[in-house]
Design a protein around this nucleic acid. Sequence first.
RNA 1: GGUGGGGUUCCCGAGUGGUCAAAGGGAACAGACUGUAAAUCUGUCGGCGAAGCCUUCGGAGGUUCAAAUCCUCCCCCCACCA
Length: 441
Amino acid sequence: MANLIDILKERGFIDQTTHEKVLDQYLEAGQVTCYIGFDPTASSLHVGSLVPIMSLAHMQKHGHRPIALIGGGTGLVGDPSGKTEMRKLLTPEMVDENAMGIKKQLSRFIDFSDDNALMLNNADWLTKLKYIPFLRDFGRHFSVNRMIKAESYKMRLESEEGLNFIEFNYMLLQAYDFLELYDHYGCRLQMGGSDQWGNIVAGVELIRRVRQETVFGITFPLITTSSGAKMGKTAEGAVWLDPARTLPYNYYQYWVNTDDRDVARFMALFTFLPMEEIKELEKLNGADLNSAKVVLAFETTQIAHGKEEAINAYNDAKSQFGARVVPKDILPSSSIHRDGGVLPALEIEAAGSVDSTPHSHIEIDRFKEGIPAFKLYHMVGLSNSGSAARRLIEQGGAYVNGQRIESFDYLLTDSDIVDLEILLRAGKKRYHKIKIIKNKS
RNA sequence: GGUGGGGUUCCCGAGUGGUCAAAGGGAACAGACUGUAAAUCUGUCGGCGAAGCCUUCGGAGGUUCAAAUCCUCCCCCCACCA
């Protein structure tokens, strides 16, 4: 079997590594502890963090022990790497709250039971550091001449806003993290985004200087979509891993809408399907790629939110956009079902009649007098304002139960209710279901 | 602390008394074409049941029939000097 580095390389995870040969041997020799830091800047991770998350999952699958390090301490300082502007500084309370959310999400990808993986917070040691001892013991190992040449500071040093001293210290703190994890957990491998290269190398060098030991670093390439956008960024904002922030339905839709050119690359990075099958995708072209996109969406949703949610999202997509049969020979390892018809009984029971389409509840009484369409679109959030809704409808982009609305003040009444539901659509892709509540309670 | 340059609608960026809800570009949205793709073309792109009116150009005052534009004070950013 190919070694782990080769596998990660083949799947597109590797940008740079330190001393590759030795690292290879090290990973072959037995269980390795590795770590990645996560910034607690928000209460949820998003799709942009998926590469590091998946890489930890791969490490664990291969018998190694991942550490997810929450940057509770470094978050108080703010990483300037690759940023054109200074970060907002976080309060300790915010960091704690965010760390909780992050752990919950990581748990879907990584098994933290029985020390199979660890979740640590660098606030536990960083906040205890004393300034003068720190400078004397570690600060002297850092050359400012070298630091100001680091790529991670470059953008900021060249920008108008500049770099302030607190941020300049970030590299030292991250290097110290690595040392701490090396000392206490035997961690000898740090991974991170390509913007972290400077910080990682700083840690590698610090450990060499103060412990005379070799430790390793791997960086991931920055993943962008073929159209140049950052991974996981849409006009509406980030695509979050927290189902309360981004509905599994929308998560699924994000992946279904993958650009043709990205399908195979994303399949390798964001699913666990075997590479031999992913390579076959190159033979697909045109509309056939859509089947692959369905599999991509199904698999990624399943990993992030579980099978039930993936099935719900799949079913809703099918009813809204039409059934698409995924041929048996495309990605055969995927557990997605292939007949294009009804789901197996077991799965139907599990999924039940759960609706993953964005929806809201409205009392039936409100339809007695009728609700003007543009108001309803605004109410449910399909439009940001009444004006926007009006434009949408005037441009012919609004549908009620599949029927295009001709005028913005079309009155929706009881007669538009079908099975206690009204299905609204905005444009080609955005759906919203209104569920009717019979009586006010 | 001194001197100079700035802060414009989601972003970049024009505008230096009325013709300004504010050029141009990007993003976004809708339509056409399609495959829930890309590219392209067309339209839209502050709010208001839409007539007209209201709110917006760092903040607060002021001048004027009229202010993003002029004046005063304040806040913030940048450059050079100290």
